[in-house]
Design a protein around this nucleic acid. Sequence first.
DNA 1: TGCTAAGCGAGACGGTACGTCGCGTCTTCGG
DNA 2: CCGAAGACGCGACGTACCGTCTCGCTTAGCA
Lengths: 201, 201, 201, 201
Amino acid sequence: MLEERQRKGGRPRDATRDADILEAARAVLAERGYERTTMAEIAARAGAGKATVYRRWASKAELVIDVLACSGSLAITVDDVPDTGSLRGDLAALRALKSRDESTWRALVGLVSELPHSPELARVVDQRVVGPRVALIRGLLERARDRGELLPGVNVDLLSRVPSSMIAYRLLVTHEPLDPEFLRSLSEDIVVPLATGRPRD
Amino acid sequence: MLEERQRKGGRPRDATRDADILEAARAVLAERGYERTTMAEIAARAGAGKATVYRRWASKAELVIDVLACSGSLAITVDDVPDTGSLRGDLAALRALKSRDESTWRALVGLVSELPHSPELARVVDQRVVGPRVALIRGLLERARDRGELLPGVNVDLLSRVPSSMIAYRLLVTHEPLDPEFLRSLSEDIVVPLATGRPRD
Amino acid sequence: MLEERQRKGGRPRDATRDADILEAARAVLAERGYERTTMAEIAARAGAGKATVYRRWASKAELVIDVLACSGSLAITVDDVPDTGSLRGDLAALRALKSRDESTWRALVGLVSELPHSPELARVVDQRVVGPRVALIRGLLERARDRGELLPGVNVDLLSRVPSSMIAYRLLVTHEPLDPEFLRSLSEDIVVPLATGRPRD
Amino acid sequence: MLEERQRKGGRPRDATRDADILEAARAVLAERGYERTTMAEIAARAGAGKATVYRRWASKAELVIDVLACSGSLAITVDDVPDTGSLRGDLAALRALKSRDESTWRALVGLVSELPHSPELARVVDQRVVGPRVALIRGLLERARDRGELLPGVNVDLLSRVPSSMIAYRLLVTHEPLDPEFLRSLSEDIVVPLATGRPRD
DNA sequence: TGCTAAGCGAGACGGTACGTCGCGTCTTCGG
DNA sequence: CCGAAGACGCGACGTACCGTCTCGCTTAGCA
């Protein structure tokens, strides 16, 4: 979101508009997808003028970034996941916890094509969309290490990126649903065995 | 690519235009990315008219699909990878073989946003872009099974999708380069341990 | 209107679109006036896209200029006015002849504010709107001179601009109608006495 | 200008802002013309907020009206013109007296396009801009009638509108300057001969 | 003196038109 | 009938301006 100018005077930004616009953007994105989403419709649905939207976000791409960044599931941190005593249990708890994440990822669609042209945008996506998700898995892995569950020599860096990658690929490229069986396999056939060396039962 | 109409007469299509247009499309995509690529520029750079392009491909998206599908690395099949006697060796051989794949994936970028709106397109991407890549890894895994390398209970379906997912995520979302270290880690820290249970040395 | 590029190839401009767009523009201008006329409505009413309009005219102002320039009454020249044997008679004949000129002048409204900023536009208005009207009166005055009706020392230059000025002022500034009594007074109380020295009967 | 509300209390309007705003408006109008003049720039140049402007004038059009109405030359009445004993002399005296009128008329420019949509505005222009100018000439003509200079049957109504019309036309439509030669011709080749029957020397 | 209502500069707000640009189709010409 | 060129209908983009509203501050005039 655009930085507010150093407030010297004048009417302050109406903070409620931010939320209204983001909510409208989320709704339109979910209904229409990135390409078919128009700034005019977002503004109209938020009961806002286009200028009010562009005062806050420099482009459609940046607005969508913020839709992603403000997405509910991103607020989850490792502290929100109860410690069940095992990595497998923690991952199951996370699955139970995780709000539906699909719309967030789907909104990322098409945005992707703007990233190579805007280092700024790419940085924001990395920090606000990718970062929190990777950090969450990394946190669970480190919790497992503290328990002594982790095999020596596990590449935590790489492993913590696997779930995000697989989910993104599924939603962006192959458009398969995020069914529970897939999510469970991801944990139990990939993450747990790699981290702990214990194959699936 | 569109089927040629049942030839009744008149001037036959100039087959050389296909290659010129694909090459121009690849160049523009590499320079500008999907969104900033215009059909007019592709046509101009190929010295062709827009109608000539649309006579062969129904849309920008389908043209880009073909750019991806004709990309060198996609032609690689399991038979092109020499049997080195171990999964680890086979994967190393594949890495040695694999032409630079980056531009292909990068071209997939903004295409992604069209997929949810076009099942047809999604099908084509699945068959011509995703399919060959997954099949290649799956082939190597099955070769390993034939050797008796594979652990029982390995989820081959899921595992064969991991490398594509990780590579796509890296290129599309985080825009990190496909450096050799990353590709080696992918094989040796993820695929080999999961498939064979042998941790990295 | 914008010059067409030196035709090398490609689809030629569809000449019928010009007329459709001009007609639509005239209609919208008459209904709404300059300020409330939008290019989008003109295009829609002409069954055209905005790009087609802007391919021909660089701005709303230039389009309106052409609406004025193509206006019917401008086609009248001194040769269209029958020689009645006297200036007074000729002016009466002109009044009988003159198609309703109001909408043309009314369209000029608001355009006026663009003139100081565009010498090009001002030149076009001068040549295509003002010029023909002044030339018509001048022609009748010269016909009168040939007859020997004209007083010596009459400022033909200035006098030939009086009717246009008075009509424009009335329509643009005071918005009184061009009733026949006004037009007759213009001829008989101003032009004829000044030119011939003969007061109204 | 808007009426001040019936004062009940609170801070009174700062009367100095009126003049500052009018002056700023005059300057911007002269520089940019009506269309390119924005209320924001007027306010900024006057060191005022937009609300302060709109508290005094209901719209851009009304503000411009007042710029015109407060223009110096409008304050001239027939009593300011010395009685020289002849219409020709009086008109010459008026020309000597008349402050540069150009910027006033130029400001009227694009205002014109608002008039047909606002009877209220049109009334104000008529009373405050057109009226005083026409009344001034009419006053001089009536002074001439009192002297017995006027021909019988002269259409004073129409004649008194001729100078305003010619000046407006010149400034608004053809954008020629108000050079002294033009103004003298207007008096001596048009008004004096028509009113008194005496041709130019 | 301190209270209060309104004015003040600043600028955000909802709206709406502008002129540009890209897509995918259609239309001309020459080969 | 193909192929180059490019005009066509459509519609989103991001900008600019209008006239209104809201913020925190200032400034009379009444108590």
